[in-house]
């Protein structure tokens, strides 16, 4: 019944035996104990389970773990490197969350999006996150958080040597 899957998760190789019907989100949360990836709706509607697979933002509740064999996935736990990722910082600075349940999915969606479109307009950001539902806010602060991150990433790219974090 079991099938061995080998994949890269947040830069680390992992190998596990899984049942084919195991959904990727359950694999991430229960087999790997990475519970930052959330389950919101179970109906492919909300985007709380969004991860990046081979650089694309996808809903991990609508992929079987066996399909991720040989692929590289990134979850919210892989974002912070030497301090918060600019997206995480943006959600912090701009108050891009209230309850925080949708936040990991929002950040992973925005992460893939900003790599494709580093200087998006507000309209483009709203389009990009249209598969991620937030039930607390009106999305205004979430959009601002992503704009903050886009600007920060651009600034960092312009000055690659500057790695020091400034704590306000």
């Amino acid at each position: 019944m079991g099938r061995t899957v080998k994949l890269t998760v947040n830069g680390q190789e992992v190998s596990r035996e899984v049942e084919p019907r195991l959904l990727l989100v359950h694999f991430i949360r229960e087999d790997l104990n990475l519970t930052g990836t959330h389950i919101g709706c179970d109906t492919t509607s909300c985007g709380a389970c969004t991860i990046n697979m081979d650089g694309k933002a996808v809903k991990s509740c609508t992929i079987f773990a066996v399909q991720a064999d040989g692929r590289s996935i990134e979850t919210i736990e892989g974002m912070a490197q030497n301090g918060l990722h600019p997206l995480q910082e943006g959600f912090w600075e701009k108050h891009g969350l209230q309850c925080g349940y949708c936040t990991p999915g929002m950040i992973m969606c925005a992460n893939a999006f900003l790599k494709e479109n580093p200087q998006p307009t507000e309209e483009e950001i709203r389009w990009a996150i249209s598969g991620n539902l937030c039930r607390c806010t009106g999305y205004v602060k979430i959009v601002e958080a992503i704009q903050y991150a886009a600007n920060k990433i651009q600034a960092q790219a312009a000055q690659p040597s500057e790695t020091k974090e400034v704590v306000a």
Binding site: T44, G47, T50, K56, A57, V58, K59, T62, I63, C109, W127, A128, I129, S130, G131, N132
Partner: peptide, 9 residues
Amino acid sequence: IADPLVRNM
């Protein structure tokens, strides 16, 4: 069709 995340798959 659906939403941007679904369209990636």
